[in-house]
Design a protein around this nucleic acid. Structure first.
Length: 609
RNA sequence: GGUCCGGUAGCUCAGUUGGAUAGAGCAUCAGCCUUCUAAGCUGAGGGUCAUUGGUUCGAAUCCAAUCCGGAUCACCA
């Protein structure tokens, strides 16, 4: 599903999107250096940064790296370069100064105003034209024996957001999920249900399906622990007790029966999985996740066997005496890895190879992204290496978007030990906090009941998503349930609040027609424009790095700049007609970009709050 | 033990293709609502960028070693 922004904006080859100002500065500098010094210069020869606030200027060329090759002082290079850039592009540069090897360039007001005039009402501003590339983002990929928890939320928010960010960069994107619907963990819930439920169902107990099944998973572990303790009391070692506990043996037998296709086991399996799916659907809908393709492991777990055969023939794999099949990756700094058991059944990685191939065959994707926790870094490295060794054409374009675990102050969350923060509870709690704060502030007196609920959802879920997305994905993060997530400062509600303030103004004021005379920009107006102008670059960067936190940080920084601007200058009662028009346009564009950036994070904005 | 990732303010985090006096938020303190929504604005305090050495005009960023924390190295998924 595309948003209408990336489809037909440009005809390939005829029109290219405008260069951002930072790219222009770079090009201008290259062009002028060539003219001045007759050498070959590229972007790599010098850096362009945003000018630090304590100096005059907008963008800065760092001159030190040019000193050696030109054999001139930074000051001399700066003077010549600055003058030449200003001479050649008088519409862009207002002036320049050189301080300690830094060439600070002031961009002209006219340039900034033209950026504003051109883009202030463009809902597609910042998004890039279609590039003809197809990419699949696999994310979420839940187990069906327990409900989603906070860690899954990080995965879901990340995956969804990265997919949207790629769309905004012109990719055709499929969101997919591989549901882990078979295996010993499901059998554990099944056997516990059989033993203890007396035929109870989610409906009969008025419980959400995934929680219902999850409860039996916990029940299994309780019983298991009890049985292990009993066996140990009767003299068995811990290892033996763990192996011999009757309920574990029953679960394992159930898995064997499942693989044999025992109708009774299959029926129960289908029923319980269905309960879980009904629960997941509610959660996914509530948190705004969607998928274009859903794979089920029960359908894919046999994939890859043919590839193992082929790999054996090609000498990529080898067979041991006992019949098991391996690959030797010791040369790549990895280990030897099993790809097929001695009994001929496949292991996890076998189906991963098969599914990777299937994705490529079915959808002709150019890039395949896997959103999977960093505990599987090794596994994913092995997978990619195997695909590479098998000369699969897509091997180089597989990308593991590895993210760190969400931990509690007490350490890792463990479903088995019940120390998890449940996803549904978490969302509900955030909505509750949103409600409390909103009522405290007394701003929704005239809202209808459903408007109120929608607002609490927007704010509460927004705060949660932002909290999880604002951190660099690859870093682990700590969540403290004692201190509930803040609604002040570096948060979604702050950004949403600024959006609502702008909307409030725009409801009451129309943007007047044209300027009567060119406006001169005040520092905060200029700062806001500088920030707005960066948006397309940020969208591109977050796609390149597969990192939504760049957008989150950007959206906050933009909202913060607006907030200062708002406190300092009146918009509706500006000192002149021109200023009023300028500021309304600024406000309008800010709202537009905030909405767009948050939307890429999966966060919506309220018209009032 | 091998491999990989991380260590920045009391807390949670930015900042790493090497650039100016290392930045935000929370918490603390001091101001600011008769004017567009104070979920706000302005300001203050708070740092041995884990440690040591190296590379150079310049290092939180690169290299080496060390310390601390985590992940992973299953005929589990």
């Amino acid at each position: 599903m595309q948003d209408g922004c990336t489809g037909n904006l440009y005809f390939y080859g005829f029109e290219t999107p405008d260069m951002s100002i930072i790219e222009q500065v770079q090009q201008h500098a290259i062009e002028c250096l060539k003219a001045l010094y007759q050498g070959d210069f590229t972007e790599k020869d010098f850096q362009v940064n945003q000018t630090k606030p304590e100096f005059r200027g907008d963008y800065t060329v760092v001159l030190f790296s040019l000193v050696k090759s030109l054999k001139l002082s930074p000051d001399e290079i700066g003077q010549k370069l600055g003058a030449e850039m200003a001479r050649r592009h008088p519409d862009t540069y207002l002036g320049f100064n050189i301080i300690k090897g830094f060439l600070n360039l002031e961009i002209s007001d006219a340039y900034w105003v033209q950026v504003l005039e051109k883009n202030f009402d463009d809902v597609c501003f910042g998004k890039h034209p279609m590039n003809g590339k197809k990419v699949m983002v696999e994310y979420s990929s839940p187990n069906t024996n327990k409900p989603l928890h906070l860690g899954h939320l990080r995965n879901n928010f990340l995956g969804w957001s990265v997919a949207e960010i790629l769309k905004a960069n012109g990719y055709e994107v499929w969101k997919s999920s591989i549901v882990n619907d078979r295996g010993i963990h499901i059998c554990k819930s099944m056997i516990a249900w059989k033993l203890f439920a007396n035929g109870a169902t989610p409906a009969s107990t008025n419980t959400k399906g995934d929680h219902f099944v999850g409860d039996y998973y916990v029940r299994f572990n309780d019983e298991y622990k009890k049985q292990v303790a009993e066996l140990m009391d009767s003299g068995q070692t811990e290892d033996d007790a763990k192996k011999n506990a009757p309920i574990m043996l029953q679960a394992q037998q159930m898995l064997v029966d499942w693989e044999k296709g025992d109708p009774e086991v299959l029926a129960l399996w289908k029923t319980m999985n269905q309960w879980v799916y009904e629960g997941f659907d509610i959660t996914y809908k509530n948190i705004g996740c969607d998928f274009d393709i859903v794979y089920y492991e029960s359908n894919t777990y046999l994939l890859g066997k043919d590839l193992v055969k082929k790999g054996l023939e090609d000498g990529v794999f080898y067979r041991r005496e006992d019949g098991s099949v391996w690959i030797d990756l010791a040369g790549e700094g990895l280990d030897e890895k099993l790809v097929q058991r001695k009994d001929g059944t496949s292991v996890y990685i076998t189906q991963d190879i098969g599914l990777a191939q299937q994705k490529y065959d079915q959808y002709k994707i150019d890039k395949s992204i896997y959103v999977i926790g960093d505990e599987q870094n090794y596994h994913m490295k092995v997978l990619q290496k195997i695909c590479e060794k098998m000369r699969m054409p897509f091997a180089a374009d597989m990308h593991h978007l590895s993210y760190g675990m969400v931990e509690l102050p007490s350490g890792k969350m463990k479903s088995r030990e019940g120390t998890v923060v449940d996803a549904d509870d978490m969302v509900k709690e955030m909505e509750q906090v949103a409600e409390n704060k909103t009522l405290e502030l007394g701003k929704v007196g005239d809202f209808t009941e459903s408007e109120r609920l929608e607002l609490y959802h927007t704010i509460g879920l927004g705060a949660l998503k932002f909290f999880l997305l604002r951190v660099d994905p690859k870093k682990k993060m700590i969540f403290n349930p004692e201190e509930s997530i803040d609604f002040h400062g570096f948060t979604a509600p702050f950004i949403q609040f600024n959006y609502a303030r702008i909307r409030s103004i725009l409801r009451k004021n129309e943007i007047p027609k044209a300027f009567e005379q060119p406006a001169t920009l005040l520092p905060l107006e200029r700062e806001l424009l500088l920030s707005l102008e960066k948006y397309p670059v940020i969208i591109r960067q977050s796609a390149q790095e597969l990192n939504p936190s760049l957008l989150a940080i950007y959206a906050y920084q933009l909202a913060k700049t607006f907030s200062s601007f708002y406190a300092e200058h009146s918009i509706a009662s500006a000192e002149s007609h021109d200023k009023k028009r300028l500021r309304l346009m600024l406000a309008s564009m800010t709202a537009q970009v905030i909405k767009s950036a948050l939307q890429l994070l999966g966060i919506s904005v309220p018209e009032r709050m």
